[in-house]
Simulated scan of single mutants.
Amino acid sequence: MKIFYREHLKPFLKKPYFGFIMVGLVLLIVRFLVDVLPPDLYGAIVITSYYYIAGLGFALLLGYGGLASLGTGAFVGIGAFGLHYVYRFLEMPLLVAILVGIVLSIIISIAFGFVSLRISGMYLAIVTMGLSQIIIEIIKNIPKYASGTSGGFLSGGPPRPLVFLGMELSQDGSVVFMAVFVVLSMTIVHNLITSPTGRALLAIKNSETAAQTMGINLLKYRLLAFVISGVLGSIAGVLSMMYIRNASVSQIGLTFALNILAAVIIGGTKSIWGILMGTFVIFGLDLAVFQRLELGNLSLIINGILIILVVMFYPGGLIQLVGDLKKQFKIIKKKLREKIYGPE
């Protein structure tokens, strides 16, 4: 038994994939604790989970590609409204509706990627913000969404409940989808950033000229980064629609893109676990803590202060703070051991 643990189980427990699976299991456990957990805490965990997927996609752009895009909200909107329109009005199966949203996000993200070849830095942020606003206006000009909201699956005509494989899917049942997609997203992003693709993106971020000299194709890797980011953003929109059962263009505009940016910066642009912490701080903490304390708009001020403090003292994000605390804990542990047992 000890040999099995040492040679097989222990190495697996140290792999990042074990942590990813545990995140999925936690979400599944939360799903079945819906009647036990406080509603605000439950909502904070669920919202954090699907916006975390969008944060992972944005981190791939910013942390590894150096591409400051503010178009994340557009892809979330494509996923949410695309799912609603295809499923609700075209009466397609749920999986087909999800795939249509993903395909649309790929097409739009390719357009974003071509734009990134001509401009960069703050100019890219401004242009992607403009493109995102265009997409939002296109959604609003669809007659069924003129009010800026989707209206859910049961309003505006004959109701069509959300059905998957012949079973009606409840709001809480959609958390199972979230668990699966969160694990898949974490795995995909981890494999990308630890592969030659991740190293190529970092090379492009550090110096485009040097990257091209080494034979790295700017078009290929920038388009790939935008496509993956767009798909993950679209999946986040799909999951939000499946859980909330409604979508609003006011929730996918510039404010949302800036919140995703803040979540990634606070957590750490190059850390999968840091982004999870940052996403909870920006999207989940308000529901779990601030609203319970009835702080109102003070939550925005607190988030702003957190961003300033992290940028000033921990530019690597909260994950850097966690790393420093671990080092301090090891030092204290070593000193206590020496004090009790003497120096080694």
Rank of each mutant, 00 (worst) to 15 (best):
G82C: 06
L83S: 08
L83M: 13
L83F: 13
Y85L: 13
Y87K: 12
R88H: 05
F89W: 12
L90Y: 15
L90D: 07
E91H: 14
L94D: 10
L94E: 11
A97F: 05
A97M: 06
I98Q: 00
V100C: 11
V100S: 10
G101N: 04
I102E: 06
I102Q: 01
V103A: 08
L104H: 00
I106Y: 00
I106Q: 04
I106G: 10
I106K: 06
I106R: 07
I106C: 11
S109T: 05
S109K: 04
S109L: 03
I110F: 08
I110N: 12
I110D: 09
A111P: 01
A111W: 13
A111R: 12
F114W: 12
S116W: 00
S116C: 03
L117K: 08
L117R: 04
R118E: 04
S120Q: 10
G121T: 00
M122R: 06
M122K: 07
M122G: 12
Y123Q: 12
L124W: 02
A125C: 03
A125Y: 01
I126F: 14
I126K: 02
V127W: 01
T128G: 02
T128S: 04
M129D: 02
L131T: 02
L131G: 07
S132G: 14
S132F: 08
S132Y: 07
Q133R: 01
I134D: 04
I135H: 02
I136D: 00
I136E: 05
I138P: 07
I138G: 09
I138L: 14
K140V: 14
N141C: 02
I142P: 14
I142N: 05
K144N: 12
K144G: 11
Y145I: 14
S147W: 04
S147F: 12
S150A: 08
G151F: 01
G151A: 05
G152V: 05
L154Y: 12
L154M: 15
S155V: 15
G156V: 08
G157W: 13
G157E: 01
G157C: 07
P161C: 07
L162C: 06
V163R: 05
F164G: 09
L165A: 15
L165T: 05
L165G: 06
G166H: 03
G166S: 08
G166F: 02
G166K: 05
M167Q: 15
M167F: 15
E168A: 14
E168P: 15
S170Y: 10
Q171L: 10
Q171I: 08
Q171D: 11
D172E: 14
G173S: 06
G173D: 11
V175N: 05
V176I: 10
M178T: 06
A179N: 01
V180Q: 01
F181K: 08
F181N: 05
V182A: 07
V183A: 09
S185D: 02
M186W: 10
M186C: 11
M186E: 11
M186P: 12
M186D: 03
T187E: 06
T187L: 13
T187R: 11
T187P: 10
I188M: 14
I188V: 15
N191I: 10
N191F: 09
L192H: 08
T194P: 00
T197G: 01
T197K: 02
T197D: 01
R199V: 00
A200Q: 00
L201N: 06
